[in-house]
Every structure is written in C-alpha cells, then in structure tokens.
Amino acid sequence: MTAHIWLPIPPDDIEGLPEGPDYRYWNGGADFPADPADCVFYVVPYMQPPGVGLRPLPQMRSVEVVQTLSAGIDHVEPGLRHLRPGVRLCNARGVHEASTAELTLALILASLRGVPDFVRAQDRGEWLGGFRPALADKTVLIVGYGSIGAAIEDRLAPFELARVVRVARSGRTTERGPVHPLAELPALLPHADVVILSTPLNDSTRHLADDSFLARMKDGALLVNIARGGVVDTKALLAELESGRITAALDVTDPEPLPREHPLWRAPGVLISPHVGGPTSAFMPRARRLLVEQLTRYVNREPLTNVILMTEPPGEH
C-alpha cells in the first residue's frame, strides 16, 4: 500500500509542504483521486455542500488524521463512526478567528446604526436621518468563549462598552475577567444589549437560543449568530422578530442555505449574511500555514495541534 495524503488545495499551491508523502488533490469532485483505503491524512474539502466531505470516510480504513479547514466539526462528526479507533480529528483553530470577528463587528454596527435601512433609502434616493443606537455604553454577552469569542472581544475593546460578559460550557478565569458557566446564562441574558452566539454546534447547544432563551433577552436587544444556524430555534426567533421586541443579525441560519421563500428573509429587524464569516482573503494563507505545520508535525511524528477528539471503538462514549 502507498500511503496518500488528500488535500483540497493543489499541493503545488502550498509552499513548504514536507517532502516524502504522496499528495493527492481532492476538493469534493465526483471521482476520488486514489483509493480512499490508502489515505492516511485526510483534509476535508472546505465550503462544499453538506455530505460531500463525508463520502470517502467509510472507505478510509487506514486514515490516521482527519483535518478540517473550518472551526466547527459538526459537518464531519456523522462520518466518524465509520473510522477505526484512535483517528485524530483536528479543526482549523487559528484560521478563521480574525475574519469571523471582523464580520461579527460589521453585523453589530450595521444592525445598530441602521445601515440596511440606509442602503434601501439610497436606492429610493431618500435622505433617512434620525437617531440610532450606538455600540458605546452597551453590555455585550458572548456565548461561547473559545478562540473566536476571544477574538471578538479583542475587536470590541475600542468601542467603550459598559461591560463584556463571557459564557462558556464551564466557568474559568481569564486575564480579562471571569468566564461564566453555561448554567448561569439565564440570569445573564436580561442584562445584555447585544448577545453574540459563537459556540460550537453539538447536542448541548442545538436550539440553545430557544423560546425561553429569547424571552429572557431584554427588550430592544440584538441577537448575533456567527456560530451555526442550529444553535437558534428559527421558529422561536421568527416569533420574537415579528413581535418587534428584539432584532437579529445572522451569518448562519437553519435551514441553510435559506430558501428563497423562507419568512426569515422578510422578518422585521433582521440582517442576514450568507455564512461568510470565514471565506475572506485571510483564509487561504492561514489555511496553507496550518496544513504545512500539521503535515510537518505528522511526518516528523510530533504531536499535532488542534486535536478536538479521537475516535473510539463502537459503543464507547
């Protein structure tokens, strides 16, 4: 058997790849570049339709590492049951933080300052003046305080906020202050002017923002979702938006892509961007650097970075 490494970027376009491995390019096409059974290191295609990256996994009997180029791993997890025990699953920590945090600030500022209204007014040739909410003096709640949550706080720092409140699965202390455990979230929601969702999607966070969560948000608050669409209960959000009690800025939706006739498109007080937190000019250079680092570590049998989990024998949890 010849061991292969599958990459969704042509190997010739990645400067610094370690010599020795047999690199094969596959970005989700109909035909595999080689027998999946010979693949030992699989880099999952990025921004492909659901299920594309899962196709070769049942045949990857020799794979040792599955590397995503996304921060989330929910799109890969359904295929892990096909893999042998001990396969390392790694995410793309370090690739998306800057771009996703940039978009988060853009969505917050655009929503608060009414930029979508200004664009529509420009199309009509209408001068739309008046007072709008500022980000200054607001309390911002970040739900999901990993590397992306921290990067968002980095960019919030100059905006003269009243307070930043951090929430994660478990509580801890950082240089910036406490991170509250998820169990305290219900008590924190009523005090936040802006609630940012940057948590992974898993069994504990699916529909985290349900009717109870949304009802606890203060009147006039802004919900920002740059996590995954499934973190929010869309039906519950629609009810709150249509009441006019809160507003929302969503880079992700459930379902996704959002169908043309879906009522969320026309709900009052919502700004929707089409899941563009990660794909920017910063992506490719950072993705290449990550792959060079990981593959160099792999070839030299050094510990990999960004290991999220290792697969277990069937029936174990």
Rank of each mutant, 00 (worst) to 15 (best):
M310Q: 15
L214S: 00
I308T: 03
V232E: 07
E302N: 04
T174C: 07
L304K: 04
L237G: 09
G114D: 11
D117P: 12
P259W: 10
V231T: 15
P21S: 07
T2L: 11
L295R: 08
L295P: 01
E302L: 12
D203Y: 02
H4R: 15
A192M: 01
V299H: 05
G125R: 12
D193Y: 09
A236P: 12
E77S: 13
L105P: 12
D137F: 11
T280Q: 01
A192S: 04
A106K: 03
L105I: 07
L69Q: 02
P190N: 06
I148C: 03
L156I: 06
E184S: 15
T173W: 12
I9H: 09
L197C: 07
P268N: 08
E261Q: 14
V292G: 02
D211C: 14
G220E: 14
I14C: 06
P158L: 10
L185I: 00
D193R: 09
C39E: 08
L197H: 03
L185P: 00
P10Q: 13
L182W: 04
E312Y: 13
T280F: 02
A110D: 15
T247R: 15
L141F: 06
V43N: 06
A209M: 09
N202V: 05
D137N: 10
H207W: 12
T173A: 12
P178D: 02
A157F: 07
V270R: 00
Y25F: 15
D251G: 07
R172P: 10
P11N: 06
R163P: 04
R245Y: 02
R216N: 03
H75V: 10
A101Q: 10
N306C: 07
A106W: 08
P133W: 04
T104C: 11
G149I: 04
V76E: 00
R81H: 13
A162Y: 15
V76Q: 01
A37Y: 12
I14K: 05
M47D: 15
G94P: 05
R286I: 00
I14W: 13
V164F: 13
P50E: 13
A192G: 02
R113F: 10
N202M: 02
A134R: 14
G114L: 09
P8H: 04
L54C: 11
D211Q: 14
